[in-house]
Design a protein around this nucleic acid. Structure first.
Lengths: 144, 144
DNA sequence: AATATATAATTGATATATCAATAATTATTT
DNA sequence: AAATAATTATTGATATATCAATTATATATT
């Protein structure tokens, strides 16, 4: 056989952790009837964090392709959670903003997401968390 | 604003690490003209590791949905890298196996993948790696 | 100002993701 | 053995992923 077991590859474990967490959160979203995906939540949260931004910026911050952002924003727009606002003297970009419905949606459901985040690091000291974060950033740097 | 910054969420950093690494590896696959995706490589590698297995087992070990496995195996089959072998007295499952082309493909390209793995953990001591693996498994356990 | 270049968003093609429903087969129960 | 239940793989619907090509617009160059 060529090479060691896939389970021993750290990148595989990272991917596994990410997948398991996403499935956990998505199931809870579905159970609670939120009507959006985890990816959609992340976009909403980034828009909220920066108040308003272009799709290009949103793609960078969310680590997603601009094409993917276009399509997800179409969905979020249909759901009434965001809007593409025209920019004066710039017809090439939009300001992406939360609607009031979108803002309320985040406020109403932030507790759920916070619970997922807390659950994921249950039993970790803040020192351990710092160590983990540092290691992840080193891997990111190695692969950049 | 509701909650802290998304960049401070450890699950976001885990996801980010996973995405960056996948992009890195996929670009190298494309550059070298391997003609498959990272996901396809992982399936091939798991099949090699366990010699042969059902699609159900393959789904479990790769952490993917059976539906997704069906479709990816169709592609790998078209590329001549795997085959669905009939099982005697069991017409509900197949044994998924590498073809000789598939075996050769793995041998020929394992060095490339090994280089990616090594690069990802450049600068890590084996102790650090153990710590990281342990932390990831704790998160997996928290979210299961 | 006219032309060329660069940028932002979109669209098309293809792969992957999940869930739900279905089909085919196997195992269990009565 | 016949009916019921459980299992495996597939298919359909929809969301997300990338890259390449396109469109529209803005910026830079001559």
């Amino acid at each position: 056989m060529t090479g060691g077991k896939i389970e021993d590859v750290i990148l595989f474990q990272i991917e596994k952790t990410s997948k398991i967490s996403k499935v956990y959160s998505q199931r809870d979203f579905d159970r609670l009837g939120l009507g959006i995906t985890i990816e959609q939540w992340i976009l909403l949260k980034i828009i909220e964090e920066f108040d308003q931004m272009s799709q290009k910026e949103l793609a960078e911050k969310s680590l997603r392709d601009p094409a993917s952002i276009t399509r997800t924003l179409d969905l979020l727009s249909k759901k009434g959670l965001i809007e593409r606002q025209a920019i004066e003297n710039n017809r090439r970009q939009y300001n992406i903003k939360l609607t009031s419905t979108g803002k309320k949606f985040i406020v109403d459901n932030f507790g759920t997401v916070q619970a997922h985040r807390s659950k994921s690091v249950e039993g970790f000291t803040s020192e351990e968390l710092k160590t983990l974060e540092g290691m992840l950033k080193r891997i990111q740097s190695n692969m950049s």
